[in-house]
Design a protein around this nucleic acid. Sequence first.
RNA 1: GCUCCCGUAGUCUAGUCCGGUCAAGGAUACGGGGCCUUCGACCCUGCGACCCGGGUUCAAAUCCCGGCGGGAGCACCA
Length: 515
Amino acid sequence: MPPTEQETELSRLGGPEEEGRPSGGGGMPVLPPLPGAVDGAVTLRLAPFPSGALHVGNARMLFLNDAYRQRYHGRLLLVFDDTIGSAEKRVDPELFDVIRGDLELAGVPVDGVFYKSDRIPQFYPWARRVIDRGGAYVCTCAADRLRENRKAGRPCPERLQSVEATRTGWEAMLGGRFAEGEAVLRLRTDMADPDPAFRDRVLFRISDLDHPRVGRKYRVWPLLEFSWAVDDVELGITHVLRGKDLVMEDRMEEFLWGLLGITGPPFLHWGMLRVREAKLSKSKSYQEVKSGVYDGWADPRTWSLRSLDRRGIRLEALRQFTLSFGLSLADVEVPAETLYAENRQRIDGSTPRRAFVPDPVAVRVDGFPEELREVVLPNHPERAEMGERRVRTGPDFWLPGPEVLRHAGTEIRLKDLVNILLPPADPAAPPGPIAARFTSRENRKLPRIQWVGTEGAVAVEILEVDGTLRTGRGEAAIATAAPGTVFQFERVGFVRVDPARPPGTAAVRVCFGHS
RNA sequence: GCUCCCGUAGUCUAGUCCGGUCAAGGAUACGGGGCCUUCGACCCUGCGACCCGGGUUCAAAUCCCGGCGGGAGCACCA
């Protein structure tokens, strides 16, 4: 293997352990080693909440975990964090399959799938152990009262309750003698803890919500921190990789483990990642998809993995892009252009070119040479092996309206074809095609614009990233392209043919990727 | 407000743990030139950074202190 290839191969696996020239950006990411990791004995987990398709914001979780799994030949578990949630944050059962599909799309295989909602009974004995150690108490304060006390660092009277009283209270919770919101099991940390967020946090609460998988089978639900303190141990997780929004959860888990005299896995974090163009309001996409405003989870406005796929952005490019940020705790905001550059590098050399004319106007070229009624054009300017296609030409053309206007009265070149002289702009011109005149064939330095012969032209709609449609005419070969084909529309950008045609029209629908 | 984290060019990142090899590397963006019949690719070339102030040291992007700026957490959400 030549050195360059060797390096690429190494970086794909997370890089050489001891040295190497690490670099960011589109370079080769070298992730730091996982503390105490033993090759072949690493277990990691993915813990999505089923409230939406995976999007660019989740990509870090996905690819970082997967990169380490590969590097240590370990296992990666998918654990749906589907505890009961809240009225605002509901578990949507459709999303279980959506997310599994996303993982497949992203090329991230998992070695096991778990649902938190299946594991509820396993959390109760652990709660009991914490109670027996005097680590928790049942609190009947109203939620807002509890919050105020926490802010003030003031303990509620129940904090002093005996282990025996807590056991009774806990049994009462399980026995259904409290209504929703009337009692919670709280961890006894320290009401004077300098971090107000860490003061006697809630471990279990009562909810009457109907869970899509287990219905009303349980009323006492653990909160995320407790459930993970248990499952990170019970599922044999060796390293927890999570976003820095979850740092306090580390402390919670460690506190609980300390209480029970056990040692859990170490935690690693990454900072917040934002793609500038993608304003990801978590719940907004959900609403828009559900209400039909968005065109499903693959709508480009969601910035979901599947929407990127729809746009012809290889998820391999997203992986490289994501991994380039490493495990830094710093928050990053990157322009999507960086991702596009990564993708362009991968697809440019293998993507056939096609002509597409946006905002077309009809132009008739007088004196257009008969022998050029049909021409043969290469599919790629640099790759003869990609073949060629026959294209019908004029004398009647569709040309991009704004450019015809801009160059009115001057000579321009129809790309790969001939030179023509456009008439001066004439607001009083009669309806019908604009009359231009053939001037010459030789390739001169003139403004070049793309064209589509009227005969055989096909209507094309481009779905833009902001959800709007851009219509125009494309060359005939576009019509026969299989769904999923990626093209570069010359002077426009990379697009991918949509799986479905727009209803009720003969138009071809493509989704815009990037320029 | 409190707690924690972060602060290298327009953007992202390497280096910071173990101070000198860093007059700071890479990517992307941008400028100039070239080339291919694309606003795309490729080639050449250029621009551009250690948040600020003190301290320690022969030597600081790297260690210490203090500011300032940004982010996250402070839910009976995840």
